Amino acid sequence: AVLRGLTNDEMWVALGTGAVIGLLLGVPLTIATASIAVAPTSMIAGMAVVLFAGGTLLRRAKRARPETWLYRKLEWVLANRWRLGRGSLILHSGAWTVRRSRRLRP
């Protein structure tokens, strides 16, 4: 299933992130307004904002790229910047050659 350009896994990550952001913003508002209903309302609002905004941004970023582009890009960023998972990813830049010689046929 695809919603706003997000795959299933991406959608669940966006919804979880939106719920956490909404909860973090909603707890102080709940204390300030003395109404317990503000916390779940802000969670739902946060999920909606992150789902729609994240879907739009990811749809633009993933346009005309393969399905696994986002996951490979995240893996590359983690390996380059944070030094995580370097063993499974080839990090080499330079000229690429095949090193084949042309075989003459008799």
Rank of each mutant, 00 (worst) to 15 (best):
L15W: 10
V98P: 08
S101C: 02
W82D: 09
A39F: 09
A32E: 15
V98D: 09
G87W: 05
P66Y: 02
L74T: 12
E67G: 02
L70E: 11
L15R: 02
K62H: 03
R4E: 00
A39R: 13
L6M: 08
L3S: 05
V20F: 12
R65L: 10
V20M: 08
Y71I: 04
R83P: 04
R63S: 02
T97L: 05
V27N: 09
L89N: 09
V20G: 08
A48H: 01
P66I: 00
G87C: 11
L3Q: 05
L24A: 08
A19I: 12
D9C: 03
I90G: 00
L91V: 14
S101V: 07
T7I: 00
V2Y: 07
A79I: 12
I90P: 02
A1H: 08
P28E: 04
T68P: 03
K62V: 06
E10I: 11
L57M: 02
L57H: 06
A14W: 01
I90S: 03
R105K: 09
A19T: 12
R99P: 01
V98C: 04
A1Q: 07
I31L: 12
H92I: 13
Y71M: 03
V13P: 01
V49T: 11
V27L: 15
P106T: 02
L29F: 14
M47P: 02
A37Y: 13
L70Y: 11
R81M: 12
V38D: 12
I31V: 15
T17F: 07
W96N: 13
L70H: 06
R65Q: 08
V13N: 01
A61T: 10
N8G: 08
L104V: 13
L3K: 02
W76E: 10
A39K: 12
V50S: 02
G46N: 06
W12V: 11
